[in-house]
Computed example of a mutant assay.
Amino acid sequence: MKSFEFLSKKREEKPRECGITMVLDKGLGLETAESLMNISGEYVDYLKFGWGTSIVHEQDIIKAKVQMYKDHDITPYTGGTLF
């Protein structure tokens, strides 16, 4: 049981149609991003690679992060600066 779970409304399971949550990855390292998803990934539905970070970081790191997010049933995408 989570701390203070009794205070929260029950969320829909993934894939959700209500209560969808988007998170911004501002250039997190792979280990930091994975730690964050291990703690909070169940609440995240979409994750945007922010501010062009996906073109300035090493390709193998971006690929590993994309796979890790998908393993947590999160849809990663680019946007903003790149468009």
Results as ranks from 00 to 15, higher is better:
residue 83 F to W: 12
residue 17 E to Q: 15
residue 79 G to I: 10
residue 40 S to M: 11
residue 33 A to T: 11
residue 26 K to H: 13
residue 83 F to T: 13
residue 43 Y to C: 09
residue 52 G to K: 02
residue 19 G to L: 11
residue 7 L to T: 02
residue 58 E to S: 07
residue 1 M to C: 11
residue 76 P to C: 04
residue 7 L to S: 05
residue 75 T to E: 14
residue 21 T to Y: 08
residue 60 D to C: 11
residue 50 G to L: 00
residue 80 G to P: 00
residue 70 K to G: 06
residue 44 V to R: 00
residue 32 T to A: 15
residue 7 L to H: 05
residue 62 I to H: 00
residue 9 K to H: 06
residue 65 K to S: 02
residue 55 I to D: 00
residue 20 I to F: 03
residue 31 E to K: 14
residue 78 T to D: 07
residue 50 G to K: 07
residue 34 E to C: 10
residue 69 Y to F: 15
residue 24 L to A: 10
residue 49 F to D: 04
residue 81 T to P: 03
residue 74 I to C: 04
residue 36 L to R: 03
residue 46 Y to S: 07
residue 46 Y to L: 15
residue 9 K to N: 02
residue 24 L to Y: 05
residue 53 T to W: 00
residue 80 G to K: 04
residue 5 E to R: 11
residue 74 I to G: 07
residue 1 M to G: 13
residue 71 D to H: 06
residue 54 S to T: 09
residue 8 S to H: 13
residue 31 E to D: 10
residue 56 V to S: 08
residue 79 G to W: 06
residue 81 T to S: 10
residue 20 I to C: 08
residue 12 E to Q: 04
residue 40 S to T: 09
residue 35 S to Y: 15
residue 6 F to D: 15
residue 4 F to S: 08
residue 28 L to K: 09
residue 16 R to K: 13
residue 53 T to C: 08
residue 1 M to D: 10
residue 33 A to F: 10
residue 6 F to S: 15
residue 41 G to R: 01
residue 20 I to P: 08
residue 75 T to A: 08
residue 81 T to K: 13
residue 82 L to V: 14
residue 78 T to W: 04
residue 30 L to W: 01
residue 52 G to I: 10
residue 21 T to R: 11
residue 40 S to N: 11
residue 61 I to R: 06
residue 82 L to R: 01
residue 4 F to P: 00
residue 35 S to R: 14
residue 77 Y to G: 12
residue 37 M to T: 04
residue 52 G to V: 01
residue 5 E to F: 13
residue 12 E to C: 09
residue 10 K to P: 01
residue 35 S to T: 12
residue 33 A to W: 01
residue 80 G to I: 03
